[in-house]
Design a protein around this nucleic acid. Structure first.
Lengths: 264, 264
DNA sequence: GAGTGGTCTAGACCACAGT
DNA sequence: CTGTGGTCTAGACCACTCG
């Protein structure tokens, strides 16, 4: 199909430019995974392992499209994926540059459990409460349910490397009460919710701080009073309905939130 | 606190279709502003003022494209902009739905000043320090400059409605020292940096908490000890070089961070 | 002027949801 | 089945940067 193109690709710009060796292309056109995402993953890996030199520039989009055997819009979409994550920087009239440093982290609905696990910190949970109760008016208001409709209330003590790290209070509407029947001592609540068919879509988090109560300090093995990081979160599913209301308390001495923002 | 008026609103989407009256099209094809963005703004406004009914569905993309007189890809790109902000939800085989509630806020590099201003809280700053000094090794390491190269150190006391709210320490590399010559008592540091030609691109924030020091509590008009929200931030410009290192301390009783996340 | 990314078009075929 | 959004193509013209 496009084998003649390869010949023109040598653009001897004489040494001054760093030559980026792109990995062999292994696109699977039958796969469920979109081409642009396969491409983005290839490039991400190439950056990670250094085949694409940090600080250098990519070849131009049309060349890349030819090299990968896809159209320019598809190539652009792959590049955009990495730009959105802060791995690449595009400048009109100049080119696309690979960022210098590991400054980018994907933004995601933070699952504390997964974060700890990927940091090798041996997360586990002690389930302190798992019951269906009538909600406090404030909780009912957040979940947009009437106060006479029960909700699932979970309270877990999150441990990392055997040390207590956080107290996690979560409230789920009655239609999701079955989530309480799963084993929550291992794995994240989000996994359990996804397994129950919930498709989380958008979440609003508020992160603050306050003095821990005597009970909280005691549970978390801190002197009293100690400062705590607090997180409140309202998660909506893909129909726009509230799926979860969370009130979390973290030991300030052991935890902080990390967020990467990309200016659009 | 949002009102609970809509709590008992029924979904009942099956079969029934709300007819959304789209506003008259006023696209400017000569403008610098891309068509897809003009379109997105139109739709955002229509949602905001209620011409597009919350919870209802948009017409399909091809119809919309015809109605707006643009191609389908352009229409899709406009829709995607709003999906990314959590205003719309797309489902294959179903359609595009307008979210039920005001759950979406754009994610942005948080400028405390702008946030306070848009909340009508009369922000102002008292500049406590504005000097070029040799950096602490930790600061030099963050900014990737040698310890013998001076940096600009700013310390401001941020006030809101006449009350102290936060102590803002910012460090800028020497090449941006001119930012210190602008009036920083009004407006945000980010504005001043942008005015100086800095194009901020990606920032990494860490949000945590700790007990405030005696001096901090005194400056912030809090009893000692009081819990503080802390924020550290490293901002990079579009060449990937560090442009700013920030260490901020907020009164936990007066401030929290609000973040909206969209699952992709 | 040459090369880059930014925008836009007019199609095409596919996967999925609801009938 | 029909209708929806998801993906992909092969062009085109433009605005910008830089030598």
């Amino acid at each position: 199909m496009a084998s003649d193109d390869e010949r023109h690709r040598r653009q001897s710009t004489a040494g001054r430019r760093i030559r980026n060796n792109h990995p062999p292309i292994t696109l699977d056109r039958v796969s469920e995974v979109p081409l642009y995402h396969q491409l983005a993953e290839h490039m991400r890996m190439a950056i990670k392992r250094g085949s694409l030199v940090r600080g250098s520039r990519l070849r131009n989009e049309i060349d890349l499209a030819k090299a990968f055997g896809v159209s320019r819009p598809t190539t652009r979409r792959a590049i955009q994926e990495l730009v959105d994550q802060g791995l690449l920087i595009r400048k009109r009239g100049v080119g696309t540059q690979i960022v210098n440093d590991e400054i980018a982290r994907p933004i995601h609905l933070s699952s504390l459990y997964d974060d700890l696990k990927s940091d090798q910190r041996n997360p586990e949970s002690k389930v302190l409460l798992n019951q269906v109760v009538l909600p406090h008016p404030a909780v009912a208001a957040k979940l947009l349910v009437p106060t006479h409709e029960p909700v699932l209330h979970l309270r877990r003590l999150r441990m990392a490397d055997g040390e207590p790290l956080a107290i996690l209070d979560n409230f789920l509407p009655y239609r999701l009460r079955d989530v309480g029947n799963t084993d929550l001592s291992v794995g994240s609540l989000y996994h359990a919710m996804r397994a129950a068919g919930v498709r989380m879509k958008v979440a609003n988090q508020r992160i603050g701080a306050r003095q821990g109560t005597t009970k909280e300090c005691s549970l978390l093995n801190e002197p009293s009073p100690s400062p705590m990081v607090t997180m409140e979160r309202l998660t909506h599913d893909d129909s726009g309905k509230p799926a979860e209301w969370a009130q979390h308390v973290y030991r300030a001495s052991k935890y902080e939130f990390s967020i990467t923002l990309v200016v659009k």
